[in-house]
Design a binder for these strands. Structure first.
Length: 250
DNA sequence: GTATCCCGCCAGAGT
DNA sequence: ACTCTGGCGGGATAC
């Protein structure tokens, strides 16, 4: 009897199937309100405990994250600078306050407040739709437009304007929103399709005076013209005649 | 019908 | 070879 393998014994039980194989128990409702809980409990935990580093696998188990989902959470938080990945299986928690810093830096690096920056220059092509890049871009939309609320549909339409991957972009934006709501960056949604930036962040990123330009009123009304201009372009990306159903293309 | 988001396949990257 | 990562988007569910 050579190697073959009647049945390869799961040598590494620790990994794989942390959650993947659990839905054996009949149908058990339909969804997992646990994902939300997992996220907030995780944030809670990690904000208090000041440990040098955490293991991805152990966190998954501890908070019952489906592995695939935890990667999403980590990527979003890492993009925002709250987490730093050390290596496979471990990361450090830098803190929620790092988010402000991270975005502030992006604002500078990308000349978001430069009147000569147009929407197209600020949001270039994007073939791979990574959740981390979408996270940053989405937040940048609020800042570039100086808006506290945006329609997720239009944002998806706008961000996918070149790659034609509306469906995928929209799905991912929803994932990002879902996570960021539980992290406190976005507020709970009330109006369908509308996503609102939490006050603290809105006032920090969107109500600060723009460098060169005159002080601006924090009202949607009296924004500098270049902001108005961007908004005009942005709202060109029509209110999709709905369709999560029309997969990509078109 | 539309808005949300659950879910996991499978292709690449990493070791 | 293997495992780890995460792009991708079908399709179920909620409203």
């Amino acid at each position: 009897m050579a190697e073959t393998s009647i049945f390869p014994i799961p040598q590494d039980v620790r990994k794989m199937f942390i959650e993947e194989s659990r839905p054996k128990e009949e149908k058990k409702s339909k969804n997992s309100e646990s994902f939300q809980e997992s996220i907030s409990q995780f944030i809670q935990f990690v904000s208090h405990n000041k440990e040098s580093s955490y293991g991805i696998l152990s966190i998954c188990e501890k908070f019952r994250f489906q592995r695939r989902r935890f990667y999403d959470v980590v990527n979003v938080l890492e993009a925002l600078g709250a987490i730093n990945r050390i290596n496979t299986d471990s990361f450090t928690w830098l803190g929620m306050d790092k988010i402000i810093t991270t975005i502030d830096q992006k604002i500078k690096d990308n000349s978001i407040d430069d009147p000569s920056s147009t929407l197209d220059s600020l949001f270039p092509q994007e073939n791979k739709i990574t959740i981390s890049r979408l996270t940053i871009r989405f937040i940048m939309c609020f800042i570039a437009l100086r808006k506290q609320s945006l329609s997720i549909q239009i944002v998806a339409k706008f961000l996918s304007r070149s790659n034609k991957r509306f469906k995928t972009t929209l799905c991912k934006l929803y994932q990002v929103v879902y996570i960021l709501i539980n992290v406190g960056i976005f507020e709970k949604r009330t109006i369908p399709s509308e996503v609102t930036l939490a006050d603290v962040y809105y006032s920090h990123w969107c109500q600060n005076p723009i460098s060169g330009i005159q002080q601006l009123a924090n009202l949607d009304k009296e924004a500098p013209e270049f902001i108005i201009q961007r908004r005009t372009v942005f709202y060109t990306y029509l209110p999709t005649r709905t369709s999560t159903y029309l997969s990509d293309s078109d």
